[in-house]
Amino acid sequence: MSNLSKVWVVVEHGADGILSTSLESLGLARRLAAAGGVTAVVVGDAVARIAPELFAFGADRVLALEDARLGTYRTGPFASAFGALLRDRTPDLVLFAGSTRGRDAAAAIAADLGAPLVVDASDIRIDAEGLVFVRPSFGGNLFSTIRTAGEGPRLATIRARAYPMPERAAGRTGEVESVAASIDEASIQTEVLGFEAQDAGEVNLVDANVIVSGGRGLGKPENFAVVRALADALGGAVGASRAVVDAGWIPYLHQVGQTGRTVKPKLYIACGISGAIQHLAGMRTSDTIVAINKDANAPIFKVATWGVVGDLFDIVPLLTKKLRARLGK
């Protein structure tokens, strides 16, 4: 099968800019689409601000779906408006970010349109018989190759950092089209009453380039300071094993693993984490893994790029100090 004529990327953006997964998705869309076939869909009123960036990262067209009722993402009105647009324009493939919002939106659209949806696609390619998706399951312990049945658009959510960031081509331009959203009032089932921020900078595991995680080996909750200091030196996020979250040493938001977050940072540093299979499930696809643990037989060393057997209280503070010096902090 030849490249697809229409590939859409539903762009997620906020106060701090465009989600990197959306830009990575544009790179993927570029590879799957025929010339001129990549459309970035922007919901809300940010289109004038972010369209130039979307063109620079590979979009041929930007479709702006506008309506005041779409201001804060809600499943109902989004699904109503975007579903109507999909039925009208019939793209071949629609890519959503694998974020909470992207997964929520993709599932509702798949249900409404009867369209196949592959969640967390780690690879999408085209062969003689059509589109082929690959996705991990069982906490990254199994990769399934999937083909979809039926007609209509194919939907996928894209895992953060699964695809390279495309080259930014400044000056690349394209066409912007604004579409007035058509929203069925009956679709509005929720009202957002507020948002209570949590220490986001420190926690944002899914977007972090670097994650420094702590486990039982820290001994007591106060010792997370050692992990925080290294994370701070590297501009990274703080992660944790299930054991210490269940013990109440650190909030659930930090948990990496089967019942926490699945992460794929460029660098993952595990301090005092033995590496239970449930923890490995959440971090084994990280680009580089450093493990520091006093037990030479800890399973974490089986997935570590570089391992250090030793006392983390000797090693981590010294590592922090030396990295700070090298980074001029």
Binding site: T190, F195, L253
Partner: peptide, 13 residues
């Protein structure tokens, strides 16, 4: 609802 970076407060039908 737990979102990235915080809790969203929602009234739902």
């Amino acid at each position: 609802r737990q979102l990235e970076g915080g809790r969203e407060i929602v009234r739902a039908k």
